[in-house]
C-alpha cells in the first residue's frame, strides 16, 4: 500500500510536530474512517501517518466540577458504558451505543467521529443539543469551538491542518432535564443514520418545557438545529398537539438530499417522525421516567 511513513506519537506535542502543516500527514486513531476512505479509493493515504492511539492524555472521560469531559480518544464503547453519561447526558449514550458494531465501537473514537464531519455521524447531534464545546490544539495553544461552529460542510471543519481535536466539554444540565437521540435505521448493526434527531428539554416544577434544543442528523450538509421544532415544544407540557407541531417544525427545517439510502421526500417526512420521538423520550426522561438506552431499538420493536 504505497510508500507510507508511520509514526506512533505518545504525546500531543509530538503528534503536532509530526503532523507539521498537515499537507502530507494525517492522524489515525481507530482507522475506521481513515482506512475505509483509503480502501474505497476516496482518499489515499498521505505520505505520513501519525498514530495517536497511544497518547495517554487523549484517553478517558469523567465528570469534573459538574461538567462532562471526554478526551478525544474515548471510544464509543467506553462512552455508552459510562454511568455518568447514561444518567446525565443520555442522548450521547443513545448515540454511541448505535455506532457500527462492537468492533466499530471498540476502535471508533469521539474525536474521530466529530472531526470526520459526516452529516450522518451519531454523536454530533447529541453533543449539539447538550451544548458541547470542542477543544482544538495547535502549536499556538488551545482554542474552544462551540460545536455548532465546528462543521462547515460534509467532511469539513473549521480546524486548520495543524490542529488536533483533544476533547469535548459538555456542561451540566439543569434539574428536570432529559435528552435523547433517535435514529431511523434499516438494520440494527453497521448502519448509517437515514435520518436522526436529538433533543434536550428542561421542565419546570409543573412539567412545562422551559428550554428545548432539537438537532437534525443526515438532514442537511451538516448537523443543524431545528428552531421551528424547538419553538413548537417550548412552553407546552409535551402533549400530543405539541409533539405534532415538533414534527411539522423539524420537517420544515430539514434540508435533505436524495441518495442511495433514502430520497429527499422520504427523509423530510421521517425528519418529523424521528424528531417527535426524540423530543418525547427526552421529555419522558426529564420527568424522571426511565427509557432504555439506546432509545432506537425500542422503537424498532414498536413499543412507542
Amino acid at each position: 500500500m504505497g510508500d507510507v511513513a508511520f509514526h506512533t506519537a505518545t504525546t500531543v506535542a509530538e503528534a503536532l510536530t509530526l503532523v507539521g502543516d498537515g499537507s502530507d500527514a494525517r492522524v489515525v486513531a481507530g482507522g475506521s474512517d481513515l482506512m475505509v476512505g483509503v480502501r474505497s479509493g476516496k482518499s489515499p493515504l498521505p505520505g505520513t501517518v501519525v498514530a495517536i492511539h497511544r497518547i495517554a492524555e487523549l484517553h478517558g472521560l469523567g465528570v469534573v466540577a459538574g461538567e462532562l469531559r471526554i478526551a478525544a480518544l474515548a471510544s464509543h464503547a467506553e462512552i455508552c458504558a459510562d454511568a455518568d453519561v447514561c444518567s446525565g447526558w443520555t442522548a450521547l449514550a443513545d448515540a454511541s451505543a448505535l455506532v457500527g458494531s462492537h468492533a466499530t465501537r471498540n476502535v471508533g473514537t469521539l474525536g474521530g467521529n466529530l472531526m470526520n464531519a459526516s452529516p450522518a455521524m451519531e454523536t454530533g447531534g447529541p453533543l449539539m443539543v447538550l451544548g458541547a464545546t470542542v477543544t482544538l490544539r495547535s502549536a499556538a495553544g488551545d482554542r474552544a469551538v462551540p460545536i455548532e461552529e465546528l462543521w462547515t460542510g460534509p467532511g469539513r471543519t473549521v480546524a486548520s491542518p495543524g490542529e488536533l481535536c483533544t476533547g469535548v466539554v459538555v456542561p451540566a444540565l439543569p434539574a428536570h432535564s432529559g435528552s435523547a437521540y433517535v435514529r431511523l435505521e434499516y438494520r440494527r448493526a453497521m448502519e448509517i443514520a437515514i435520518v436522526g434527531a436529538s433533543a434536550c428539554v428542561t421542565l419546570d416544577e409543573s412539567g412545562i418545557v422551559t428550554s428545548a434544543r432539537v438537532a437534525l442528523t443526515a438532514l442537511a450538509p451538516t448537523i443543524i438545529r431545528s428552531p421551528a421544532a424547538e419553538a413548537a415544544i417550548l412552553g407546552t407540557d409535551g402533549d400530543d398537539a405539541a409533539l405534532d407541531a415538533v414534527a411539522a417544525g423539524a420537517s420544515a427545517d430539514a434540508r435533505p438530499i436524495s441518495d442511495l439510502r433514502a430520497n429527499e421526500d422520504y427523509r423530510r417526512a421521517m425528519a418529523g417522525v424521528i424528531a417527535k420521538r426524540a423530543v418525547a423520550v427526552a421529555a419522558q426522561r426529564a420527568r424522571g421516567e426511565s427509557f432504555p438506552i439506546p432509545a432506537t431499538p425500542v422503537f424498532m420493536k414498536g413499543s412507542v
Binding site: 506512533t8 482506512m35 480502501r39 501517518v49 458494531s101 468492533a103 466499530t104
Partner: peptide
C-alpha cells in the same frame, strides 16, 4: 474489505476489531 462484514475479525487486546481497516503497525505493543 470495507469494515462491514466482519470476516476479518480479530481481537486486539481482547477486543474485537475489523482487521481490514486497522493498521498493522498500530498493534505493535
Amino acid at each position: 474489505d470495507d469494515c462491514e462484514c466482519g470476516a476479518c475479525m480479530v481481537l486486539v487486546d481482547d477486543k474485537p476489531v475489523n482487521s481490514c481497516t486497522y493498521l498493522a503497525l498500530q498493534t505493535v505493543g
